[in-house]
Computed example of a mutant assay.
Amino acid sequence: MSIWRPEVSPQADSPHPNPEGTTSQSTKPASGQAAGDLLLGEGANELLRERKFDAWDSRIYAISPGSRGFLEQSGTWALLDANRIAAVEEMRIFGDTGAELDFSAYQMGVPELACILEGSALQHALWQVLQTQDNLTLLHPAQCKTLTVHDGQAELALQDGCCLNAKLIVGADGRDSWIRQQAGITGNPIDYQQHGVVANFACTSSHRGIAHQWFQADGILALLPLPDNQVSMVWSVSPERAVQLLALSPDELCAQVATAAKNTLGGLHLITPPANFPLRLLTLEHITAPRVALIGDAAHNMHPLAGQGVNTGFRDARQLADILLARGVQTDCGAAQLLRRYERKRKEDIYIMQATTYGLKHLFNNTNPLLRTLRNSGLAITNQITPLKKILMQHALN
């Protein structure tokens, strides 16, 4: 767990704005789920000391152009190895009867639809940026004990006896957020009855910068481009099917993935061991409480089929920072009206992404013949309407 707090007032033109009086807490995000915030997790010191770039990380993020701009502004993007980042120039989505929906960067008028990079590399770069800021005190490792909210401030007690007082606590501590629990923000997670199986492969046919996705009766398979003609897999399947996939030999797994992908990328060679993680939906009525704001997985969980979890979390961080920096004469960064403003501005975006992923998952994970016809017809018709495709993609580019 890492905790940091700013020591000086923010400057509007600072490349690393940190509103005075805030304390942020983070832990390592739950496996396979991106917290989508600037707060790093457990093990960051080990990443800093022992970072090796020989093996590929099977946990990858699809970073939108909007999130990339945010990372560039903070100085993080410049620290990433460009040789380990792949641009997504096109997306091809297939229904379970052959219907297809395509998106291209050229059609959208942008250099790329997204960039694919490793989670560990992003965490490492973020941690480096944090350590260059002279307006932060980093407490790492640290373990929280209690959170007490008073009228004018919050008090965060640590297990080592240290006590932090702040006007605002930002909870970025993952899907099982301790801050969320302590603040009394409750929600009822919905189990998707699916696990995400992840692994990386080398392929014999060029991926040409195309992200492929297949909606199938038994799950959703995505193959995302990596450098050197490699791809990263996210296969959302039932828990039972996930166990079966993990038990396969490397050659057997490659054969099954290639078959499910219609041999689009030719033969496959496994380059990282497969892993899996449970998928769930978490929708919260409130993402703030007195003196507390949630961002990233602490504020929302969604299905990974759209690759928007990390980007939604980055938009949380961007929105909260914008509101705090534009607060004018308001000296209390944890004031209730500021937190209400943050919550209002984030609700629509979060709802759209959660509703879209929830609806698509259930639309295609359904054996109803009528729905099968409608969903595939919908893909085919949408693919012929360029203005509609631009509207659908625009939100994902932010």
Results as ranks from 00 to 15, higher is better:
residue 5 R to V: 02
residue 12 A to Q: 12
residue 19 P to I: 02
residue 27 T to Q: 08
residue 28 K to Y: 13
residue 29 P to V: 04
residue 33 Q to H: 10
residue 35 A to D: 07
residue 36 G to K: 00
residue 37 D to R: 02
residue 45 N to W: 12
residue 46 E to G: 07
residue 47 L to Q: 07
residue 53 F to K: 08
residue 55 A to M: 09
residue 58 S to C: 13
residue 60 I to S: 01
residue 64 S to M: 06
residue 65 P to V: 10
residue 66 G to P: 03
residue 66 G to F: 06
residue 71 L to Y: 11
residue 76 T to K: 00
residue 76 T to D: 02
residue 80 L to Q: 01
residue 80 L to S: 01
residue 82 A to Q: 15
residue 83 N to E: 14
residue 83 N to W: 06
residue 85 I to R: 03
residue 91 M to K: 00
residue 92 R to C: 10
residue 93 I to N: 00
residue 99 A to N: 08
residue 101 L to Y: 04
residue 104 S to Q: 07
residue 105 A to R: 01
residue 106 Y to T: 15
residue 108 M to F: 09
residue 111 P to W: 05
residue 116 I to N: 00
residue 127 W to C: 01
residue 128 Q to A: 12
residue 130 L to M: 12
residue 131 Q to G: 07
residue 132 T to S: 12
residue 133 Q to D: 15
residue 134 D to C: 06
residue 137 T to C: 07
residue 141 P to W: 11
residue 149 V to G: 04
residue 152 G to P: 04
residue 155 E to I: 07
residue 156 L to D: 05
residue 158 L to S: 03
residue 162 C to S: 12
residue 166 A to N: 13
residue 170 V to T: 13
residue 170 V to I: 15
residue 173 D to P: 01
residue 176 D to K: 04
residue 180 R to Y: 11
residue 181 Q to E: 14
residue 183 A to R: 01
residue 186 T to C: 10
residue 190 I to T: 14
residue 196 G to I: 02
residue 202 A to H: 07
residue 212 H to L: 12
residue 218 D to F: 05
residue 222 A to Q: 03
residue 226 L to P: 02
residue 232 S to G: 11
residue 242 A to D: 06
residue 248 L to F: 10
residue 255 A to C: 09
residue 260 A to G: 07
residue 267 G to L: 15
residue 269 H to W: 14
residue 273 P to N: 15
residue 274 P to Q: 08
residue 275 A to R: 01
residue 276 N to D: 15
residue 277 F to C: 03
residue 278 P to S: 12
residue 286 H to P: 01
residue 295 I to M: 07
residue 298 A to C: 11
residue 305 L to F: 09
residue 306 A to V: 11
residue 310 V to G: 04
residue 314 F to V: 06
residue 315 R to Q: 08
residue 326 A to E: 15
residue 326 A to M: 08
residue 329 V to N: 10
residue 331 T to Y: 05
residue 334 G to T: 03
residue 345 K to L: 10
residue 346 R to L: 02
residue 348 E to P: 02
residue 352 I to V: 14
residue 354 Q to T: 07
residue 355 A to D: 14
residue 356 T to Q: 06
residue 357 T to V: 12
residue 358 Y to L: 14
residue 369 P to T: 12
residue 378 G to H: 03
residue 381 I to C: 10
residue 388 L to G: 08
